[in-house]
Simulated assay, not measured.
Amino acid sequence: MSLLYRVLSRLPKPVRDVLVKHKELLKFAVVGGVCFVVTVTVNYTLKFTVLNDNPVTAQAIAVIIATIVSYVLNREWSFRTRGGRERQHEAALFFLISGMGVALNSAPLFVSRYMFNLEVPHVTLLVQEVADFASGIILGTAIAMVFRWWAFRKWVFPQTDARPRIVRVGRRGQRLAVLTEDDEAA
């Protein structure tokens, strides 16, 4: 039995039912967390090295790298049971929508830096970095995440149950989770 199902079997039934009901959203959020760490790491690495004078470019590159990671994780884990499109069409839509997400993610940072002039020499370095983090990392990521969740489910992975599913039953006959055949193999 996989770790996920060992954990689920130990949770109270009401909690387990909520987690199973919203499993896809929870997986999407975990992927988002992983990609958030990728985005922050790449963004600050670029921003404090080779793209010191181009914070929006550093942010955009970081988001693009995280988007590639996101496609693989979402396709193979978050939306594992969804589909309905040929792989190439699905990938093209994913990256198109993610490109729109890059623009949405970068927009608050652009506004903060170039419309509100929250950059050195107009403000201190600390104020600039706090504003960059709040607008580019926090606000931009939140806006893009909500958009992507909606758009991925609507256009990229439109059909529920497009891949085979099986039901995992616990020791006492209670239904623990609905899985794909891929989950069963893990």
Score class of each variant (00 low, 15 high):
71 Y>D: 00
39 T>N: 15
109 L>W: 13
71 Y>Q: 00
37 V>Y: 02
107 A>Q: 05
90 E>W: 03
104 L>E: 01
72 V>K: 13
33 G>F: 08
83 G>S: 06
152 F>D: 07
9 S>V: 14
66 A>N: 11
76 E>F: 08
48 F>K: 11
34 V>S: 14
122 H>S: 09
55 P>W: 12
8 L>S: 09
148 R>F: 02
65 I>H: 06
136 G>K: 08
97 I>F: 15
153 R>F: 00
91 A>Y: 02
99 G>V: 10
78 S>C: 04
131 A>W: 01
175 R>N: 01
4 L>I: 15
162 A>C: 05
128 Q>W: 03
139 L>G: 04
81 T>L: 02
86 E>T: 07
165 R>I: 11
150 W>S: 13
114 Y>P: 02
117 N>L: 09
185 A>R: 15
95 F>G: 05
54 N>R: 15
31 V>K: 07
20 V>Q: 15
51 L>T: 08
40 V>S: 06
83 G>Q: 05
117 N>D: 06
10 R>E: 07
4 L>N: 09
64 I>W: 15
164 P>D: 12
62 A>D: 07
106 S>L: 05
19 L>T: 12
30 V>N: 02
9 S>W: 04
57 T>S: 07
105 N>Q: 14
127 V>F: 10
180 T>G: 09
132 D>G: 10
97 I>T: 11
144 A>F: 02
95 F>D: 05
13 K>E: 14
139 L>F: 10
113 R>S: 13
33 G>N: 12
53 D>C: 01
22 H>F: 15
112 S>R: 12
74 N>D: 07
32 G>T: 13
84 G>W: 00
41 T>D: 05
136 G>N: 11
81 T>I: 05
28 F>D: 01
179 L>K: 10
97 I>E: 06
65 I>P: 00
77 W>S: 02
119 E>D: 07
166 I>K: 08
152 F>I: 10
174 Q>M: 03
121 P>C: 05
108 P>H: 14
104 L>T: 10
17 D>M: 08
42 V>T: 11
117 N>I: 02
17 D>G: 00
55 P>Q: 07
15 V>E: 06
10 R>Q: 13
154 K>E: 06
23 K>E: 08
26 L>S: 11
144 A>T: 11
182 D>W: 02
184 E>G: 07
145 M>W: 13
153 R>H: 08
163 R>V: 08
57 T>N: 01
156 V>M: 02
37 V>G: 05
99 G>I: 08
183 D>M: 11
59 Q>H: 09
135 S>P: 03
31 V>Y: 12
30 V>C: 08
101 G>A: 05
89 H>Y: 01
54 N>I: 10
181 E>R: 13
84 G>H: 01
93 L>R: 13
111 V>A: 00
66 A>R: 09
7 V>T: 14
43 N>M: 14
114 Y>H: 15
115 M>S: 06
1 M>S: 12
102 V>W: 00
184 E>F: 08
